[in-house]
Design a protein around this nucleic acid. Sequence first.
DNA 1: ATGCAAATGCAACTCATTTGCATCTAGTTT
DNA 2: AAACTAGATGCAAATGAGTTGCATTTGCAT
Lengths: 146, 146
Amino acid sequence: MEEKRTYPQGIKWTRQRKDVYDVLESASEPLSAVQIYNHIEKHPAEGNYAISTIYRILTTFEEQGMITKTTWLGDDSCVYELKRNSHTHYAVCLSCHKRIPLHDCPFEHMHDQSHEEEELQAGGFTVTGHKLELYGYCSTCNFHKA
Amino acid sequence: MEEKRTYPQGIKWTRQRKDVYDVLESASEPLSAVQIYNHIEKHPAEGNYAISTIYRILTTFEEQGMITKTTWLGDDSCVYELKRNSHTHYAVCLSCHKRIPLHDCPFEHMHDQSHEEEELQAGGFTVTGHKLELYGYCSTCNFHKA
DNA sequence: ATGCAAATGCAACTCATTTGCATCTAGTTT
DNA sequence: AAACTAGATGCAAATGAGTTGCATTTGCAT
């Protein structure tokens, strides 16, 4: 049942940290601290969890550069996801907040023709990533408006 | 002193709403409800303001499609800005949260070659806008890291 | 000028996130 | 393997952005 796993180095790997890491690793989209908390509560391996611990762990992971913290457009709470080699952008419905994943990152086709990044680099800014969201109205909400 | 101004139609234009609108119009970047509140408090034209009124007004403006509500990457509170004919994207420093405005929108050069938008439209989704942020580390924070 | 639906001020409330502090534990040292 | 300790956790109370109920006020249409 218990698998032997290896975790990134550099920090103390407590049971709680492993659990949070595992949840993030198996997640297919960014999760909020509360979602992670609930996810772990469903598999009460042992002992209690404090929601504050989840927040502290997420802060630590972020400082380690292991995860990314963002928010959904139109939503208030923060969501976290493991840094992976690929990323996904979404189209967000301004009315019902449904999110539709985009097939690929439009940004990748244009790195060469954008002078923006060059200019930033020239100014000493190191670009490590980007965040892109399209927004508008989904088919359902379009329909109900008419 | 008092200028005669015209405001968009469709809603009741109270003193408070005019004040919020004026602040947003003269702002060069998105502002939070609290920033707007403080801005107005500095010019105590008459009477008191309730922060809740600011929030309600901003919600109304958003429903009217007059303003856009977003958040800064890495920050928690919401910021609002008047919808104008042009928009600005930023590069955000993950360390000190400094924001560097980009000269133009990289997205505009690529509308034609992206299939994403077409696919969304085909699925009934109406794209009305987008949000883009680059992130990384500014020259100062790069320096202090080394 | 009058009347009323809509807007505001105020205070209490929600909910995500943070913090102080006593206790516990991973990982190292002996 | 037991001891040690810096750092991690649980708990409960605090914070801060944003919301809501309700009595009062005010645009603006008549």
